[in-house]
Amino acid sequence: MIPYELIVLFRVMPKPELTTAIKRTANAIFDRGGLIRKLENLGTRETPYKISSNGMPHRQASYFLYECNIPPSKIGDIINEYSRDVDIIKKDIYKKTIPEQFECTLHEEMQPPPYRKDVQEIMALARRKEKRKFKANTGMDYYPFQK
């Protein structure tokens, strides 16, 4: 099972209703053989843009983050169930990314264009596309015949 991060936006509602809604969404994961590692409340606040769902525009939402492991085949199923949930405004699921180690290449990118590797590649490509010119081999520096 792959670790996922599930972000759910609930509509603003009183606490007991919110707890039942959270339980409902959590049970949807458990029923499909998933498990929740962490459940985080990101707060109730105004959304950055108006979100229309369930036939109503929403300008405020309660943000919740679920860190869970779900079998990948069941994700579409869970998303489908959440989309039919009246209390959920928006949901999004992302694979949990592990930060990879890499070296900063800024010093290479700060060089003048002809020294940069990607520019050199483009130049090589342009050179390859150049049309071959026909050489007459007449030994003269001008074309002897009428054009």
Binding site: I7, L9, T47, P48, Y49, I51, A61, Y63, I89, K90, D92, Y94
Partner: peptide
């Protein structure tokens, strides 16, 4: 783009 699509951050606005 992930933050914008999940409704955490605006497309055209800044908090």
């Amino acid at each position: 783009k992930k933050a914008q699509n999940s409704g955490m951050m605006g497309f055209y606005t800044k908090e």
